[in-house]
Nucleic acid binder design. Structure first.
Lengths: 351, 351
DNA sequence: TTGCGGTGAACAAACGATTGCCCTATGTTA
DNA sequence: TAACATAGGGCAATCGTTTGTTCACCGCAA
């Protein structure tokens, strides 16, 4: 149980408002130094901290942000969350974490709760291209920032990477290694990253004069299990691919498993490139060649954008887009893991 | 912007309290069906949801829990968090996530904020054996549950595994394989898991009549980097160990790296056993033999215990201790990864 | 004596909901 | 016809802060 202003006021024999002003260091306050001293002593002695709920009601700000993601056990989102918290905590905010498992109804339910709780803002990393909840957030005048994925609703505040370029880099890398039958473990077309990375994949193929083969693109979703299943399908093809561009590192992990099951060697029998450069990528054997994006920075930048929005009260639809960089490891180039590893990516925001 | 009771009351031409009772389905409410219909229509039309902050102030409950952990990017804590959220969300709670990086001052700061925010309860998975914040929580009469680690403060509500038994199992396994020089990558002695797993390690050695060698126990902490460094030290010994029991899977991952750097084969040159059975353990090559504990269940059980405490208003110092189970993979037994994997652990609470 | 300015605080109205109690019609019963 | 239920809602306090405004008092100058 914590002490209240009223109790303190009674003990100091003053009015609660006076205690409040002393506690908040009200600059315009005129008070006898003796009274001030008495109150301050009491504040310290009781370790008074104002009731955040009452304060929130009065001031209309809760100092709480919320992060909505598919699943925190996915290392990508864990790193993202750290970035967000690291950006928010120093400014006095704490962060609610909501997992949706990619289920729209859960996302909707979480956002409704969050709005009712009057969180000061939301960072949404689980949005779909067509996503009514984004329009809804806007309509609620709730500050928000989209991360990694965006929505076609329009010009939302966003931080992410240039997915088309990243996917193009990945695919070009495989082409440069001599591969011609390159498969793609693709994300859903309901999600921006799914669509854009697919687009980058096709762009690189086209540019190299390689005829796209629809059989080589299999929708895997963004996580391990789907990656394994999609890889199985590709490897069952009469003319299977010699290389794979996986829409995320986690689907690439699934592909590793499928390849191993069939006794395929990576990269000799099957080259693999992922996307995101999660910490796990460097620990796989062989190391996973992947497109590096600054995940932690996604989070801290998103937090800063959100706080700016909250403080100015204006929804400035700024988009921060990082340039992705290819990190070559042993999953595409035999022996690459023995070399000093490429240091990827400084910050390079665009637009 | 959301609608308030007052506005609705004005539109329905009734008193706000009446709207409130209709919205809350007050059983003792006597009201004309026509009035009720009018109000209900308005509630639906405006999608009224009571302001959670105001509600929290009045009812003295925020429907928010907090989880305090060292670092969410550690897969152990990510899985734990999911368990907690999965236990809390269906009961209408949302969850604040606080990372401490194992720094006591951060933990203290977070808990002070949480108390000021009047969260309904705290799940603490970053506690130390001597931990003033646990006493403080108790003193604040804030419901809490410790997870995985406990504090010597006394009989706190706790959910975790039997660390001594788990460590004994792990060490006995290595002994049974014929190892005599078994190293331990040890957790800090300031943390219960560090002390107890060390104890289990020594118990198994003593029971087998193996003389403990102080040089073989190196404090690594609980994460990868420390594991690598500690392993380096052990491998520099004149008479290095042939097997390692690592206090956590993450330190074992560090050990993998150190072994690889020296060209050691696992398990032929160095057998390794970890603790926790995080998802990553099964994906390493070779698979990591480890002590399985039901991480997700730690979380969901802790959430249930906390909610029970909140609802009854009583701090029942119940302890739920799961029996750990050894999962054998290729890091200790060559070829074990090819075999159908052992299915570990059902729930088995004790005490 | 009156007026005035400055000090040092108290007063009171919010913020938005919840809830025990009270009040006023309109039957109903004796 | 007086007493009394009952139905249908309104009143007002309360949760703990914040903050614009008011107020009492004192000393001093006119």
């Amino acid at each position: 149980m914590q002490v209240t202003l009223k109790e303190l006021a009674a003990r100091a024999n003053v009015h609660p408002s006076t205690v409040s002003r002393v506690a908040n260091n009200d600059p315009g306050l005129r008070i006898a130094s003796t009274t001030r001293a008495r109150i301050e002593a009491l504040l310290r002695e009781t370790e008074y901290r104002p009731n955040g709920v009452a304060r929130g009601l009065k001031l209309r700000q809760t100092l709480v942000l919320a992060v909505v993601i598919p699943d925190i056990t996915n290392p990508f989102f864990a790193a993202l969350f750290r970035g967000i918290e690291d950006g928010a905590t120093p400014r006095g905010y704490q962060v609610l974490l909501c997992n949706t498992d990619g289920i729209p109804e859960r996302q909707r339910a979480h956002l409704h709760s969050l709005a009712a709780r009057r969180v000061d803002g939301v960072i949404l990393a689980s949005t779909f291209l067509k996503d009514p909840t984004v329009r809804w957030l806007r309509h609620q005048r709730m500050p928000y920032v989209l991360v990694n994925r965006f929505s076609e609703e329009g010009a939302d505040p966003f931080v992410g990477s240039d997915d088309v370029t990243g996917a193009t880099l990945a695919t070009q890398h495989l082409i440069a290694l001599g591969h011609r039958r390159i498969g793609h473990l693709a994300g859903q077309t309901t999600v921006s990253t799914g669509v854009l990375r697919r687009k980058g994949y096709h762009a690189a193929l086209g540019e190299a004069g390689i005829q796209a083969d629809a059989d080589l693109v299999v929708e895997s979703g963004f996580v391990e299990e789907g990656g394994g299943q999609a890889m199985d399908r590709l490897l069952s093809l009469g003319d299977p691919p010699s290389a794979i561009f996986a829409v995320t590192d986690m689907t690439a992990v699934g592909a590793y498993g499928a390849a191993r099951k069939r006794g395929l060697r990576i990269p000799e029998d099957l080259a693999i490139v992922g996307y995101n450069d999660i910490p796990l990528a460097g620990r796989l054997i062989p190391g996973l060649t992947t497109v590096h994006v600054p995940i932690h920075e996604f989070g801290s930048v998103a937090a800063r954008m959100l706080l700016e929005q909250i403080e100015t009260g204006m929804l400035t639809p700024r988009r921060v887009v990082f340039a992705p960089q290819l990190v070559v490891r042993g999953s595409s180039v035999a022996g690459a893991d023995e070399l000093p590893m490429a240091r990827p990516a400084q910050r390079s925001p665009a637009e």
